[in-house]
Every structure is written in C-alpha cells, then in structure tokens.
Design a protein around this nucleic acid. Structure first.
Lengths: 155, 155
DNA sequence: TATTGTTATACTCTATAACTATA
DNA sequence: TATAGTTATAGAGTATAACAATA
C-alpha cells in the first residue's frame, strides 16, 4: 500500500462510510442493480432480459395471467406488456388466448418451446445468482426472502 | 366475497403463488421499485429525485467525493453525474472545487442551503420509509440491512 | 359508462464515443 | 499514455392520452 493510499483512501472505501451507504433504500437499490445486471448478462445468451424473462416465467407457470394482471404484478404499464408479449409471441414462445369468460381479456400461455427456453434461462439465472449468494447461509437466504416479501407485498 | 371471486380469485393473489414470486431477484426488484417510488414522491416536494438526493447526501456528508467517485459509487456514468451536479449547482445547493492535489478532479461540497435542503429531504424520505417498515421490528430492520449489504458490497 | 388491449407520442434514463485539460 | 470531466447523440425505458372492442 502506497503512502498516498493511506492518507487518502480510495473513494469506494471512503464513500462506504457515508451515512447514505447505511440507508436501507440505498442498499436495496444497489443490491437490486447488481442482481439485475447479473441476471441480464445471464439472460442475454437466451435472447431475454429481466422483463421478458418475468413474463415468460408467468406464462410457463400454470397461472394463466391476463395482460392486465401481468401489468399490475410486474408494475408495468399495459402498453409495455403489449410490446413484451409481441416480442415473445413472434419467437413463438408464448400465445395469446381470448378469455372465454371475458372476450376483452387475453390469457397468456407458453408454448412447448417457450417452456424449454424458460427452463434453460432459469438455470442460467440461478447459476449467476449463486455467485452473489454463495457466502450466505441457506438460513440467511430464507430470512432475506421473508423480509423482502414484507417490503414487496406490504398488504 | 362474491362467488366469482371464489372461483377465479383476483389476479394479484393468484400470481403471488407463482414460482417467480418466490425468486429472490424478483422480490428485490419489487421491494426496490416500491421504495424508489415512495422516495421519489416524498422528494418531489423538495425538487429532488432519488439520484439527485443521493448526490446531495454525499456532498452534504463530509466525504468530499470527486465526480469519478460519485459515478462509481452510485453506478452512474460520469456524464450522468455531470448533469446531476449541473442541476444542483444551478440551484446553489452544491459547489465544485478543483482538487489542489489533482487539478483534473472536481471535489463536490454542499452549500449551507444544500445542507438545509438535504436535512428536510432526509426527514421526508424517512417519514415515508417508516410506512413500509412500520411492521418490521428494529432487529429485523438491522438484519435486513446486514443481508442487503452482503449483496450490495460483495467484495 | 367502465374496462381490456392497442397504438402513438413524448419524456426520461442509459450507454457510447469523442473531445479538453491535466497527470 | 492514461485519467477527470465534459459534450453530443442514439438507444432503451417509461408515462400519458386516445381509440376500438367488449362488458
């Protein structure tokens, strides 16, 4: 370590001692930014991003969401959902089905190809996720998920 | 509860049972989105957003960050930091000072007006933050901060 | 009259490259 | 030659309003 580094430590370490760095919202934003970047990197090889991955995940699950439900759950505008589904539908990964009970609504399902791609993408996301979580015990992981759920779904 | 609601529960509740909803990255994204929206709402009355608030916070602290340090710490491009500081400087909340040790670098400090505004903004942010965290014990709050720090600063 | 999905549009945010002045 | 800050610009993301079909 050089004398200069001792008298004026590198900015990263100095700024970590700031009051902002202790703020929960700031930690949340930074942790999310890291997780999002890692996920997007892993998903790029499959032609997906976090947004389209989330839509595909809900289509591949058996929840049969309408576009309106997707918009509310993912905190997106309905018009953004249109664009996301258009992209996935052109690649024949998902399908829109008119809801028999309400013909205004489109129910989203995944094709076999969509399910297969989702499985591969999920593996890729989990592989990079483990890098960041490797130092965390399963118990802490569970605790974190529980606490985040309180913030994510307060009602 | 109407019969229709029992046979086809509202989308929000159905989607919460999806596998995506249990994913840590998804919970992180959703918790962050909520915290960010709440903070931005609280900050709007003071003419700030989360970004400019973060810059002002670090300027008002005594860490004397350079623009480069701000960019790295806040995960922003240096050109974005320029724009953020321009806005704060025009309102005379912060000042750029050429670093005597390296005249290429600008050290950022807050004016008295900047410190005063930051104090008010910080109160506003904490007030809305408590809404989301009211159901959380201080011990859980501390645990969450600790776990998020592991994800936010893994090295 | 209200809601679902859609389109169009404008605004913000983000990423990139090139330039200057200092080191 | 490399780095800090700046400028310009294009792309992605986001928000808003208006519209047709259906409830």
């Amino acid at each position: 370590m050089s004398p200069a580094e001792r008298t004026r430590p590198t900015g990263r370490d100095r700024l970590r001692d700031s009051t902002l760095a202790g703020d929960l919202s700031f930690l949340l934003a930074r942790a999310n930014a890291r997780a999002l970047a890692a996920a997007n990197t892993a998903l790029a090889a499959h032609g997906l991003k976090a947004r389209s991955y989330s839509v595909l995940a809900l289509a591949a699950d058996d929840v049969r969401p309408t576009q309106r439900e997707l918009a509310e759950f993912l905190h997106l505008d309905p018009s953004q959902v249109v664009a996301l589904i258009d992209g996935l539908e052109q690649r024949q990964l998902v399908e829109r089905h008119a809801d028999p009970a309400d013909r205004r609504a489109n129910v989203l399902t995944a094709t076999d190809a969509g399910r297969a791609l989702f499985a591969r993408a999920q593996d890729a996301v989990r592989a990079v996720g483990l890098d960041s979580l490797a130092s965390m015990t399963p118990r802490d992981h569970e605790r974190l998920a529980h606490l985040l759920r309180l913030l994510a779904f307060p009602d």
